[in-house]
């Protein structure tokens, strides 16, 4: 069985939005401890990992199931959530559906078809990073917007104790520099200078679900995947994005 009650449907909507920016489908691995999912985007450039511990739910009861979901359909349903709605997720094993129930002034129920998406058994690779930066999401997203004006890819750099977001187009350049004492920076754990280049669209998708005051943990090295981690609604979201490397 699987039944979970979430006090704010809107918070769960953010989690689904975050995943659906990059993935078409997902397999929720539910167990008595909570829900987890790991998947690569269709082009295998990015990895999305989510962990929603049972403590994030108002009520939670489950044994082990793989619940395969079409994210586009789930996202459309979650878009129908109202501000004060509770969300109930409930597996109907007989009909092979996930019931998505909004409980507000009325009780509205959707039965979502399950897909045969087997769990990926992917693990987030255990990469050692020389640099770890905690930064307000709004500040980082703004720096990406600046970069977006000049090119479709961006360099994330650590240089002389500063965190730099740099883009260079055919004609124009943009650069945002964060020093350790910036109000936007919570902490910087700098080991060495580093530089990796990334596709901007992916970075924007990965950070879209974060509110501007949310804290992003960004891990970077040289020609290494960037790891971006944040919490929403009691869930942990981790994204890895492969770099562009000199061929």
């Amino acid at each position: 069985m699987f039944k979970a009650v979430i006090s704010e449907a809107k918070e769960f909507k953010k989690i689904i939005d975050a995943a659906s920016n990059l993935l078409d489908e997902i397999c929720f691995e539910v167990s008595e401890d909570g829900i987890k999912a790991r998947a690569m985007d269709p082009s295998h450039v990015a990895l999305v990992s989510m962990d929603i511990p049972k403590e994030a739910f108002e009520e939670y009861e489950a044994d082990v199931h793989d619940i395969g979901i079409d994210l586009e359909a789930f996202k459309k349903i979650m878009n129908r959530a109202k501000a004060k709605d509770k969300l109930i997720l409930e597996l109907d094993e007989e009909k092979n559906k996930l019931n998505v129930i909004f409980k507000g002034t009325a009780r509205r129920k959707f039965a979502l078809a399950l897909y045969d998406v087997s769990s990926s058994n992917l693990q987030v690779p255990d990469i050692e990073y020389p640099n770890e930066i905690l930064i307000k999401a709004g500040a980082f997203v703004d720096a990406l917007k600046d970069a977006d004006l000049v090119n479709d890819h961006v360099a994330l750099k650590v240089d002389d104790g500063k965190f730099i977001i740099y883009a260079k187009g055919d004609l124009n350049e943009s650069e945002t520099i964060f020093e350790e004492d910036s109000e936007d920076i919570i902490s910087m754990n700098i080991g060495e200078n580093a530089r990796s280049t990334f596709n901007l669209e992916y970075l924007k998708d990965m950070t879209k679900a974060a509110s501007s005051d949310d804290i992003l943990k960004i891990c970077i090295g040289t020609d290494m995947p960037v790891k971006i981690e944040y919490d929403i609604g009691g869930a942990n979201l981790t994204f890895l994005l492969a770099p562009r490397i000199e061929s």
Binding site: H44, V45, A46, H153, P225, L240, A242, R244
Partner: peptide, 12 residues
């Protein structure tokens, strides 16, 4: 020229 690599290249 830089080329996009796949994330699976980093799975060991």
């Amino acid at each position: 020229k830089k080329k996009q690599v796949k994330i699976s290249d980093f799975f060991k």
